[in-house]
């Protein structure tokens, strides 16, 4: 059984809101436990609206969402419980920090789920251990941390709810290269420790090529493609037509192919590229 299943999801924003139209129409897909899914698409393609349905923040205009086989809107009163099953880390999550100490802030989510006392403490400490929040930070004010550390703490706040599915909306936005790398490894650490399903919205094709199992391509509120990284990135022309692209290394390989070198078209990472070129070299050069 799929951990997450979306059937024919449609969301239209009512009235003439002056805000960016980010509607979703007729989206269906299902995700298996432990998968890492990347969502790509330009701004306004419906990505953010889509993910806000997964934990019941938005109610679909039409269609259904199933978590562990249960329709999340079957019981209106239980909708808050869905939020501990599907964690959602918004863009710039450090802007939601509010408690006096890092510990209290990370504890906010699990406390809302009903945890208390030792159980709560264990949960927070465990989470900190998984993703490397230093012990000495726990009694500090979250506002005294550096930008990158603030984000780590904010992400820990959602992870402490131990969601089975955790969704990140552009988790690396605004960070420097080191910060971006840190966030990507936090995500990997959480998944390795808990076996959770991970969904990441990203603009970086290079990052997606490194971490994702499957890619969801959104365009104008519709699910344009949902396939393995390989099959998505093979469709360079289709991606370019909707304002996206393939990783830079893939573009170099496309260029090589145009220049007559018989290279495969499923190269998306630097390490793979080096392997392939080494083989070609060893095989006596090219025709």
């Amino acid at each position: 059984m799929s951990v997450l299943e979306v059937k024919n999801l449609t969301h239209t924003y009512s009235g003439n809101t002056p805000f960016v139209n980010d509607a979703v129409s007729g989206v269906s897909f299902s995700v298996e436990k432990g998968e890492i899914i990347g969502i790509i698409g330009h701004t306004g393609s419906g990505k953010s609206t889509l993910v806000q349905h997964l934990n019941g923040l938005l109610k679909p205009t039409e269609g259904e969402i199933f978590i562990d086989g249960e329709n999340i809107w079957d019981n209106l009163k239980e909708i808050r419980k869905v939020r501990s099953k599907v964690g959602l880390v918004f863009q710039y999550p450090e802007y939601q920090l509010f408690e006096e100490t890092v510990f209290a802030d990370i504890a906010f989510g699990p406390k809302n789920m009903g945890l208390s006392g030792d159980e709560l403490k264990t949960r927070v400490l465990e989470t900190c251990k998984i993703i490397g929040v230093k012990d000495e930070y726990l009694e500090k004010s979250p506002f005294d941390l550096s930008g990158g550390e603030k984000r780590r703490v904010a992400i820990a706040g959602v992870m402490a709810m131990r969601p089975e599915v955790i969704v990140f909306d552009e988790p690396t936005a605004g960070l420097d290269p080191e910060g971006r790398e840190n966030v990507m490894s936090i995500i990997a650490d959480y998944r390795n420790a808990t076996g959770a399903t991970v969904i990441i919205i990203s603009h970086s094709m290079e990052d997606m090529a490194l971490v994702a199992d499957r890619l969801m391509v959104m365009n104008n509120g519709k699910l344009e493609m949902f396939d393995t990284v390989e099959n998505v990135f093979k469709n360079g022309d289709r991606l370019r037509a909707i304002g996206l692209n393939v990783p830079i290394v893939t573009r170099v390989f496309n260029e090589l192919k145009n220049m007559g070198i018989p290279v495969p078209d499923d190269v998306f990472t630097v390490s793979h590229a080096v392997e392939v070129l080494k083989q070609i070299k060893a095989g006596g050069g090219n025709a």
């Binding site: 170099v252 260029e255 070609i280």
Partner: peptide, 12 residues
């Protein structure tokens, strides 16, 4: 991208 591809071809 073009320069990189040309370099690789030269090396091969």
């Amino acid at each position: 991208i073009k320069e990189a591809a040309e370099e690789i071809i030269k090396a091969l």
